[in-house]
Design a protein around this nucleic acid. Structure first.
Lengths: 229, 229
DNA sequence: GTCTATAGACGGATAGAC
DNA sequence: GTCTATCCGTCTATAGAC
């Protein structure tokens, strides 16, 4: 690991015993920084090849460190993979929080779709790791799905059913709506290779992605059959 | 390969020279039958593990044959993978044909969504192989995307824009609509592990899947903002 | 905390008997 | 067409010098 710049903050240390806590802090900083670097590289390799297809050697090479260092920071390939999944879920959870239960379903759903589209743009690799894991049976994240995603979904089902009962949305299966939002927004991260080939373009500009986001919001809002409260 | 039942149709052959064509036909039948069996097993393994994660040994084991037989019928793992992708595309293409350019966009789009949902139910493993391949960069099917999928998409964009110009659909980006249809319908095949965990059920009954299909059709038709012609 | 070297299992692919 | 045995490369993980 290229430690030259990472260790720059310790050049002014002395021999005094009061240095010990600082040393500890420095070491902790090195560990956290290297872990974060490896996690980012691992996310890219897992996205490009899936769990079994990825190798610790590829992750090490991308991080610019010997293979053994990967095992120093993460005991096994599976432990590293699991940490990537946990990280990705944390961001998913933040976006999920934007789906509030206000009286205005158009704002709540529209805001959630925008948050999910922004996440697809900001972290497409994480979305791909998540998608690959589920496609391959979700064996390494059953706990996340049942303990974290499922309760969230059930709470949103209640909210959506309430909106429907009050005539704010068309009658529908709330789960089908949530699956639709996930599928459509994550499609732009997971299937970007297909989209690039079909559009003939390399990637979307920031402006173009904003316009696309509003297209998706409009589609989803119409799909809801939202009426004025 | 368990040849006992597959060779039953040759027990009555004689020494006459007229047998030669029959022998050829029998051998051709064995080849086609074994190829089809291996392709089906390969599709399952590729769906469960992705291209790099799958091994020829796993495919052979699932097919009940020694590993060498896989290489007898398909020279390389990549050639076998490519044949699976071609097979999956052929069914995709059949479903795509149901999207006609009639004067009734509700019927055309609704029929297409039903065909795609039926395909997700009938062949979820193929959908997963396709999805994994695209997530991992679509490097092994660029030709299918640019030579087969892209022309189809462009022809449908023209049709949808025509419907919009005639006031039959709400103004929208036709590509965003097509991506939505793909994403939503394929979600039920690709993400079935997540859906099972979130719903707490093992799998959907035939009746339940029909009801779900109509939910999805209703969502998509509303998203189109379809009006009576 | 970093690195080289290597153990031990498994990968794709092939040779050659039957 | 089928199968056993095997080549050779890469895999995950670890040992041990620095």
């Amino acid at each position: 690991m290229k430690t030259d710049d990472r260790q720059a903050d310790m050049t002014e240390h002395s021999d005094a015993p009061s240095d010990e806590p600082m040393l500890r802090r420095r070491k902790a900083h090195i560990r956290l920084s290297n872990e974060a670097h490896l996690l980012a590289c691992a996310e890219a390799v897992f996205a490009e090849r899936g769990f079994e297809g990825a190798s610790t050697a590829m992750i090490a090479e991308r991080a610019g460190v010997p293979k053994a260092n990967v095992h120093y920071y993460f005991p096994t390939k599976l432990a590293l993979y699991r940490r990537v999944l946990d990280d990705v879920f944390e961001e998913w959870h933040c976006a999920a929080d934007t789906f509030d239960s206000s009286d205005n379903p158009v704002e709540a759903i529209g805001g959630y779709v925008r948050a999910k589209m922004a996440l697809s743009q900001r972290r497409p690799l994480g979305s791909k790791v998540w998608a690959s894991e589920i496609i391959q049976g979700a064996t390494h994240m059953q706990d996340i799905l049942s303990e974290r995603v499922k309760p969230w979904m059930e709470s949103r089902v209640v909210v959506i059913n309430d909106w429907i009962a009050r005539g704010l949305l068309a009658p529908m299966d709330p789960r089908a709506l949530l699956y639709m939002i996930w599928a459509v927004t994550q499609h732009y991260a997971d299937f970007d290779a297909q989209i690039k080939t079909l559009s003939g373009k390399r990637a979307l500009s920031k402006k173009a992605f904003e316009a696309l986001t509003e297209e998706v919001v409009a589609l989803v809002i119409r799909a809801c059959g939202a009426k004025a409260p």
